[in-house]
Design a protein around this nucleic acid. Structure first.
Lengths: 248, 248
DNA sequence: ACCTGAACACCGTTCAAGT
DNA sequence: ACCTGAACACCGTTCAAGT
């Protein structure tokens, strides 16, 4: 279910040709193309780790010399950009049911789900952002909804960054438990430098601190943000227009 | 102003001793200690880059062999943990003026400012989180405020993750402009794969898209989240208690 | 106990050479 | 045009040796 729409195309291509040209059984290497490289990289990250994505490892996965990749991809950076945009292609930007709040929620949820299907990839955003065509489409949809709802251009821009930042952040924090309860014992002296009496609130809450991937966390934050936006619009606070940053 | 409280201690120590022991002029190496390593590492990241923080580079900065560091620090990971906790020591957890909303805002703002003083470091959170004593104190304060305000334990835990995720995310996105307007020209074909007619909203908003570090962005998001929390509490939606995740 | 030099197993990427 | 092998300039970290 997490596969790309055409992830199985090369596979079916091969099966179509099976038996037609018996001179090369299953050892014929499929041609090395940009999409094939990107899909293999994505599979590698999903199956293993973001750290496991190495130009060398990717090359051996594709049964090719490491340098062959550089004929189709300029950089490892560009490869990561392509991977991200491929994933963002799964986001549905065309929900038009309900009011602007419902549509906004649907859009952000779809973005969230696309990232959920490829957990590790969200970490790429932490270093830099490069928006490809699919990323731009999502952004256009988001901003368009806010402008149409009546937010000022300034507020729409800020809200975009806030929602984007939050959603991506949820995935980056995901593999992490902020509470050291499950921490390895030998580091206990470090994490439990504070005596238990000093962290009563944390201890009271600890059974609910399962990390940002826990089922309801994203929805809770999204709901809080949407409620806040709705409130701002109704109280007329959504009209800031120019940024006052030339006073510094 | 971004210095640690005792960042200049070693310096003043040396100036105190100048002339007292003339046998070793300015070439006497100060003893290699854990705090000295952590401060040097932080300085290196602030002055240059997170990528510039290399055990080897740090060692030469301290005029020492790379392996000498491993006598005081187990790992590069542990070094990063120590750096983060040092920075979090600057967060003020003792503001008690105003209602819970004002106190919560003050706490998160202080956290935000501590991270702002060391921009690059926030990226460390993207891979994993290890909370040291200072991190735990902030967390305790945050959760305590919410519980006292009347939120359920479940909601307090989720809100913690949401605010944490958002604030850290703002810094990770910081150096990045999601709008490709300032992108290098030779990659234009990639970023402008969509014709201008298809992204009217983005273009309308583009002068306000300066990246997440822009002055008002964090405040806008924080305000939106706080408004949302306030609303939830008033409408009695802050009472979810158990997590329904065993139905999956 | 603390520091060092040499070495290991990795990286991304360049370059000259092959076809 | 596309692929390859060898090589370069790096990493974090281990290990045996020094003091």
């Amino acid at each position: 279910m997490t596969d790309q729409p055409n992830a199985s195309r090369t596979r079916s291509d091969r099966s179509t040709w099976v038996g037609v040209d018996p001179s090369e059984d299953a050892t014929r290497p499929p041609p090395l193309t940009r999409p094939r490289i990107v899909r293999a990289a994505l599979r590698l990250v999903d199956d293993r780790d973001l750290a496991a994505l190495t130009m060398r490892a990717l090359a051996t996965e594709l049964k090719v010399s490491p340098m062959a990749l550089y004929n189709h991809v300029h950089d490892k950076e560009e490869l990561l950009d392509l991977m991200l945009d491929l994933v963002l292609g799964e986001v549905d930007c065309s929900v038009t049911e309900g009011d602007w709040l419902a549509q906004l929620r649907a859009l952000v949820c779809s973005f969230h789900q696309a990232l959920s299907a490829h957990q590790q990839l969200a970490q790429v955003y932490s270093t830099r952002i490069r928006l490809g065509p699919n990323g731009l489409s999502i952004m256009e949809r988001f901003v368009g909804l806010l402008l149409q709802a009546g937010f000022s251009r300034r507020d729409a821009a800020d809200a975009l960054l806030v929602f984007f930042t939050f959603t991506v952040g949820i995935h980056q924090m995901g593999s992490i438990a902020p509470f050291p309860g499950a921490a390895p014992q030998d580091e206990a002296e470090y994490y439990l430098a504070l005596p238990r009496e000093q962290i009563p609130a944390i201890l009271a809450v600890s059974p609910h601190l399962g990390g940002a991937h826990q089922p309801g966390v994203f929805e809770y934050g999204l709901d809080t943000l949407l409620t806040g936006l709705h409130n701002k619009l109704q109280t007329g606070e959504a009209q800031r227009e120019d940024r006052q940053d030339d006073t510094s």
